[in-house]
């Protein structure tokens, strides 16, 4: 089965921190839920925003040292590893609603 962006991100997070698989996936899931994102339909810009704005706080809360730098490093790896995995987002509800109002 093909790896999703979520799988790749959770894997890199696990490698970049001392969290185990379950903890890394759970932490990422919580951050995605807070961001109102669907685990199955993630895009790189969405993950980037989560790692920039929400994950540093989540990691700090779990005792990860230098959480912001860790997030930056993990995000860089995700962007490299997942360049061919990204889903087409032109027909996501957000894109459709954006077009309907002409913005």
């Amino acid at each position: 089965m093909a790896e999703t962006l979520f799988d790749i991100a959770a894997e890199r997070l696990e490698e970049g921190t001392e969290m185990d698989r379950l903890e890394a996936r759970g932490t990422l899931r919580l951050a995605l839920k807070e961001a109102g994102l669907d685990v199955q339909n993630l895009s790189i810009p969405q993950l980037q925003a989560v790692f920039e704005k929400l994950m540093p706080r989540e990691l700090e809360a779990r005792g990860v040292a230098d959480a912001a730098a860790t997030c930056k490093a993990v995000m860089k790896e995700i962007a490299n590893a997942a360049s061919t995995t990204e889903l087409k987002a032109s027909n996501s509800p957000d894109e459709i609603f954006k077009r309907l109002g002409g913005s």
């Binding site: 807070e34 961001a35 109102g36 994102l37 969405q46 925003a49 704005k53 929400l54 509800p93 957000d94």
Partner: peptide, 9 residues
């Protein structure tokens, strides 16, 4: 979507 708007998505 309100949550996504909060993080600029």
């Amino acid at each position: 979507v309100t949550k996504r708007a909060r993080i600029g998505l």
